[in-house]
Design a protein around this nucleic acid. Structure first.
Length: 276
DNA sequence: ACGAGCGCCTGTCGGC
DNA sequence: TGCCGACAGGCGCTCG
């Protein structure tokens, strides 16, 4: 579920702290509890516990949708997938449903990885580069120019929507923000990537960046019961607005399936290109 | 090269 | 009321 803006919001929460959550930086891991074995990808549970105990958090980063919790000797890498969340709790709070991994901190607090659908994964590695090597550029990297984007897009003859969701093409965009950015750029989700003009591509890159920045500013999107603090769900133009009028032209928003993902768009503002 | 199908999981919602 | 399918923010795999 969480995409770049939600992951960035969580990263900021644990790096800087909030009104009710202290920063993780400087806290020491004093205990671990693995409640669902498959949540831990690497290394074995025994080695994980032995290696992480005693280490202090030194920084919290993000690459694409991966959270990077830097420790003194290792990096704890977490991917939240569809339903993962991270919670800062008192060490003696009752263990909530769907908690999968607990890290006790200085015997006073704990960091809880909660993940209803169990798709999320955790790694403890010396160097996260090997895990992240497959990722494409960060969409908010200011060095990513429309010309770069043009060149990357031209290498494929793929539908735009699945291409934007491909993390090796661009890191961090998921189903919500792909639909929102394509609407802002006035591009049909099934447009073939190699048919776009430089003007189209410039508009698409700008739309991706402005949608992601605005979502980060609003602390992400809160759907269901996760990420309650986010506000961006109140500003969706197309996502989950099937049958409702487009704010720009009044036409009913349509929902189709593209690359096996629900896809929302305005058939008037985002017409299917004539050449397919 | 590209996309469909499926597996991994649990939960909610709408239709009958 | 209960059952059943569709769907959900992700991604890795196989198969044409």
């Amino acid at each position: 579920m969480p995409e770049l803006p939600e992951v960035e919001t969580i990263r900021n929460k644990f790096r800087q702290g909030t009104d009710d959550t202290p920063s993780l930086i400087g806290k020491r891991v004093t205990g671990t509890e693995l409640l669902w074995e498959r949540t831990l990808d690497t290394p074995s549970p025994e080695e994980f516990s032995a290696r992480i105990l005693g280490q202090e958090f030194t920084d919290v980063g993000r690459r694409g949708k991966y959270l990077l919790f830097h420790l003194q000797q290792d990096t704890l890498v977490i991917h939240l997938r569809m339903s993962g969340d991270l919670l800062f709790e008192a060490a003696d709070d009752p263990i909530a449903p769907h908690h999968r991994l607990l890290l006790y901190l200085d015997d006073e607090y704990r960091l809880a990885f909660n993940d209803m659908r169990k798709f999320g994964r955790v790694w403890l590695v010396k160097d996260p580069q090997s895990l992240l090597a497959h990722l494409g550029p960060e969409p908010l990297d200011e060095n990513l120019t429309p010309e770069d984007f043009h060149q990357r897009l031209g290498k494929y003859r793929r539908q735009l929507k699945p291409l934007l969701l491909d993390q090796s093409f661009l890191a961090g965009v998921g189903n919500i923000y792909a639909d929102e950015a394509l609407h802002q750029a006035k591009l049909h989700p099934q447009t073939r990537s190699h048919t776009l003009s430089l003007a189209d591509i410039t508009r698409l890159l700008y739309a991706l960046q402005s949608v992601l920045k605005e979502a980060i500013r609003r602390q992400g999107s809160s759907i269901d019961w996760v990420y309650r603090d986010g506000d961006f769900q109140n500003h969706f133009q197309v996502y989950q607005r099937t049958g409702k009028p487009c704010y720009d032209c009044g036409t009913s928003i349509e929902r189709i399936t593209v690359g096996q993902r629900g896809t929302h768009f305005c058939p008037e503002c985002q017409p299917y290109p004539n050449d397919g």
